Amino acid sequence: MKKTKTVYILLGLVIAVLLSACGNDGTEGEDGKIKIVAAHNQTSPDSPYQAGLLKFKEVAEEESNGSIEVEVHAGTIGTEESQLVEKLQLKAADVVVVSPGFMTQTGIKEVDLFSIPYIFTSYEHWESAVDGEVGEKMADIINEKSDNSFKLLGYWTAGVRHYYGKKPLESIDDLKGMSLRTQTSGVIADFWKTAGAIPSSISWGELYQGLQQDVVDSSENAYPFFVQQNHHTTPNGKYITETAHDYTTRFLLINGEKFDSYSKEHQEIILKAAEESVKAEREANNSQEVEYKEKAIEDGAEVNQIDREPFIEIAKPIQDEAAKEMEAVDLLQDIRDLAEEQK
């Protein structure tokens, strides 16, 4: 019995030492060093997300003289955003990138306001909102309603989403009866249904084949995403109409409890690294928007413009109703006021 007890004691000590040495709980060790696990769900090394997190790593490690180590995971600890949110809550990851839709699964319904079609009228409008008082208010909501599980470090983008399908849209009437791969429930689905389309839930991984084999008539996404997947080379993805219905928002989050446990010096470095990552990610994304549009045209895709006002008029009552349900009417008005100021 004594030998067995001694073995368990020694084993416990060994485990404790190993955990302390590895610093895998994300807190500061006795030597003042911390390790941050940062993750996104994109597997492409060319993803703007990767550019953003690599900049975060670079700045954090350089500014801390190595006392902060950042480990970047590109789809290796979760290709689904729901997995990343869960890992952040469980402290199995420290910094993650997620979209508003997946944040609503945590009970913070207000964040989905940023997903409503035509909530933003331009990239400049989006930027002035998220980088101003609207963004600050949303950051406070996220922190408070998550009981400090989530602290917002910055707003990233995933580009401007457009329609692409088997025919160009000359007017909103051209959508009637067309199947369109998008969300099949919630405000996004409501918008496309009102516009006349039939939302389809075909998975992203099967979408190329679905467009190729006429399973679905059309889809919607930003240039870097659908051109990288060659959707524009299929019969049902050839025609791109720049509807610009969504200037996308992505949240760069850190576990709030871990952040609070760091020294003030490390906190300031992390905030600076986050600020630089925001600049790097947006720059990479904006560059790819131009690059992949040019590639689509070179590959034979046809791009046209459309009067967006009929789409916007459909979206307004949907925005109003959604804001009421989310208890975010004031935030919606703030966003609309910014749009008026920029006219």
Score class of each variant (00 low, 15 high):
213 Q>N: 13
133 E>Q: 13
26 G>M: 05
234 T>M: 07
104 T>D: 03
117 P>S: 10
291 E>P: 01
337 D>V: 11
295 K>L: 15
108 I>C: 04
278 V>H: 07
72 V>P: 04
315 A>G: 11
173 D>S: 12
289 E>C: 08
338 L>Q: 11
2 K>F: 08
259 F>Y: 15
334 D>L: 12
125 H>C: 08
77 I>H: 05
51 A>Q: 01
281 E>I: 04
264 K>G: 01
167 K>D: 05
311 F>C: 00
250 R>D: 05
90 L>S: 12
290 V>S: 11
313 E>D: 15
105 Q>L: 13
220 E>F: 03
124 E>Q: 12
328 A>H: 08
295 K>C: 00
112 D>N: 12
190 D>P: 08
193 K>S: 09
206 E>L: 14
48 P>R: 07
63 E>V: 04
141 I>W: 08
121 T>D: 11
265 E>C: 11
236 N>C: 09
213 Q>F: 14
12 G>S: 08
32 G>Y: 14
169 L>D: 03
245 H>A: 06
141 I>C: 06
164 Y>C: 01
91 K>T: 13
3 K>C: 01
280 A>N: 05
255 N>F: 15
38 A>M: 13
307 D>I: 00
87 K>C: 07
17 V>M: 14
146 S>A: 07
134 V>L: 06
58 E>Q: 15
27 T>S: 13
36 I>G: 09
272 K>I: 01
38 A>Y: 09
309 E>F: 08
191 F>K: 00
323 A>M: 07
324 K>L: 04
55 K>L: 08
285 N>D: 07
304 N>P: 00
48 P>G: 09
68 I>S: 02
229 Q>Y: 10
92 A>H: 02
238 K>W: 07
114 F>L: 14
25 D>E: 08
290 V>E: 14
98 V>P: 01
234 T>P: 00
155 Y>W: 10
252 L>H: 04
23 G>Q: 12
253 L>M: 13
298 E>K: 15
78 G>F: 14
63 E>N: 07
329 V>F: 12
168 P>L: 10
177 G>H: 09
236 N>P: 07
241 T>G: 06
217 D>L: 09
220 E>P: 00
136 E>K: 15
123 Y>R: 09
170 E>W: 04
73 H>N: 12
2 K>W: 10
167 K>F: 09
4 T>D: 10
307 D>Q: 02
80 E>D: 12
85 V>W: 01
29 G>E: 01
331 L>M: 15
158 A>I: 00
114 F>E: 05
99 S>M: 08
128 S>W: 06
338 L>V: 14
14 V>K: 02
236 N>M: 09
60 A>G: 10
301 A>C: 07
27 T>H: 10
326 M>W: 15
13 L>E: 04
107 G>N: 05
79 T>A: 03
232 H>K: 00
220 E>G: 10
92 A>P: 00
105 Q>D: 06
82 S>T: 14
102 F>C: 00
97 V>A: 05
116 I>T: 09
95 V>Q: 04
79 T>Q: 08
253 L>T: 05
237 G>D: 02
42 Q>P: 01
316 K>C: 00
61 E>G: 03
110 E>Q: 15
82 S>I: 14
82 S>M: 12
221 N>S: 13
